[in-house]
Structure formats: C-alpha cells, structure tokens
Simulated scan of single mutants.
Amino acid sequence: MESITLEKEEITWHQVCTIADVPADGGACVLVEGRQIAIFNFARTGDWYATDNQCPHRQQMALARGMTGSQGDEHKVACPFHKKTFSLKTGQCLTDSDYQIATYPILVENGLVFVGL
C-alpha cells in the first residue's frame, strides 16, 4: 500500500485483516512490523481503533482480549489481568495516570482493515 503524509508525518498503511477477523464489539491481535497491535471493532457505533497490545502495567500482551466499553463518549479497553483501563482514542490510562499505550491510525474500506505506522 502506498504511503501518505498525515500531520507532517509519513504513514505507511498495512493491510492487517478483514473486518470478519475482528469480533463485533471486541478485539483481535495482529502483527505489524514486529509489533503486536490490538484492533478493536465497536460495531454498535461503527468505530475502529488500533493500539499497542501490550499493557504497560505488567508488560503482558493481552489488551486485544480485554473488556471493551464506554465511559461517556470515551471508548475504552480494560486489561483482562489487572483491569487497568485505557482510552482507545488517546491511549491514556483512565485508572492510573502513570500508564499510557500507543494508538495508531486505522482505516477500514472494502471489507479490509489497515493500520498506519
């Protein structure tokens, strides 16, 4: 896929899966350039997110299996082990300001899911 420039930063889009590979209102893990990235599908709102799969609290690769939900307008995921909760928009931990995860641009078109790095 070709690279584009977004906010003065070059992004390369990687096709990572199809929409059928990610459970509705849940998550899945993909490997992109050696990184585990969690993909989240909020089917009820049509929103998609991509974040690190690693929870920074205990460095466990588990966020794709976390519990998803919302706090007001903020979509979030909770680590399945210790329940640290992260904003899927900003990556900021909503339960402990000492933690944050990386977020990535995501694009869904023609049934395919792309993550930008």
Rank of each mutant, 00 (worst) to 15 (best):
M1S: 15
E2M: 14
E7K: 12
E9T: 14
E9H: 07
E10G: 04
I11Q: 00
I11Y: 00
T12H: 09
Q15A: 03
V16P: 05
C17N: 00
T18V: 01
A20K: 10
D21T: 08
D21C: 09
V22L: 04
V22T: 04
A28P: 01
A28F: 02
C29Y: 03
C29K: 12
V30D: 04
V30R: 06
L31W: 03
L31P: 02
V32C: 06
E33W: 01
E33H: 05
E33V: 01
E33S: 07
G34Q: 06
R35I: 02
Q36G: 01
A38V: 05
I39A: 03
F40W: 02
F40R: 01
F40Q: 01
A43G: 01
T45R: 00
T45N: 01
G46N: 05
D47M: 02
D47R: 10
W48D: 04
Y49M: 00
T51M: 02
D52K: 02
D52V: 01
D52I: 01
N53C: 07
Q54P: 00
Q54Y: 04
Q54N: 04
C55K: 05
C55H: 03
P56L: 10
H57C: 02
R58G: 07
Q59T: 06
A62P: 00
L63H: 10
L63K: 09
G66S: 11
M67V: 11
M67W: 09
S70A: 13
S70H: 13
Q71G: 08
D73F: 10
E74C: 13
K76P: 04
A78C: 14
C79F: 08
P80S: 05
K83F: 09
T85F: 12
T85I: 14
S87A: 03
L88A: 11
T90H: 09
T90N: 07
T90A: 10
Q92W: 14
Q92C: 15
Q92G: 13
L94I: 15
L94T: 15
L94S: 14
T95K: 15
T95E: 15
Y99A: 14
Q100H: 14
I101L: 11
A102T: 15
A102H: 15
Y104Q: 14
P105F: 06
L107P: 09
E109Y: 12
N110Q: 08
N110V: 08
V113D: 11
F114H: 07
F114D: 02
V115H: 12
G116E: 04
L117C: 13
